[in-house]
């Protein structure tokens, strides 16, 4: 598995922060990578988010961050590789989820090319 501490080799690395309430509606978005309307429920739009959403809202605030590296998506405008980070916290008396999405497409494409060579060699042996 790749890790997120290796640094971007490409200069891409723009990140977007989306804050969701526990109903899945957008409270805030930095819109750095793509525009998300406030109040829109986006849970069903992103299968990764949908599949962990219930677990996130059942987790404690101030628990560990949930991180997923090299998430490959074909969502329109997000065609590439991204690092996802979810943190559950309490803000002004309300439990919220901060979802950070960082574009690492160029970096992970290079990793994938290197890994492809390694894995093909392993499969030949």
């Amino acid at each position: 598995m790749p890790d997120s501490n290796s640094g971007s080799a490409s200069g891409d690395g723009l990140c977007q922060l989306i804050r969701l309430n526990f109903s899945g509606a957008v409270i805030h978005s930095s819109n750095t990578l793509f525009a998300v309307p406030i109040d829109l429920n986006i849970v069903a739009t992103f299968p990764l988010l949908e599949s962990i959403f219930q677990s996130l809202i059942e987790s404690n605030t101030h628990s560990e961050a949930y991180e997923y590296f090299a998430v490959e998506t074909t969502f329109p405008g997000l065609d590439g590789f991204y690092d996802f980070r979810f943190v559950v916290l309490e803000e002004f008396g309300e439990n919220v989820i901060d979802w950070t999405i960082c574009d690492r497409t160029t970096y992970y494409r290079q990793i994938q090319a290197d890994q492809q060579k390694n894995n093909e060699a392993k499969l030949r042996n």
């Binding site: 598995m1 599949s51 997923y68 090299a70 590789f81 894995n119």
Partner: peptide, 26 residues
């Protein structure tokens, strides 16, 4: 063969014994 380096997730709705079920596959 194309190596997977991280994770891909998508979903499909299936009918199982007359009930709809959404499978979120990783």
């Amino acid at each position: 063969y194309l190596t997977t380096i991280g994770v891909k997730v998508d979903k499909k709705t299936v009918m199982v014994n007359g009930r709809e079920l959404s499978l979120l596959v990783w």
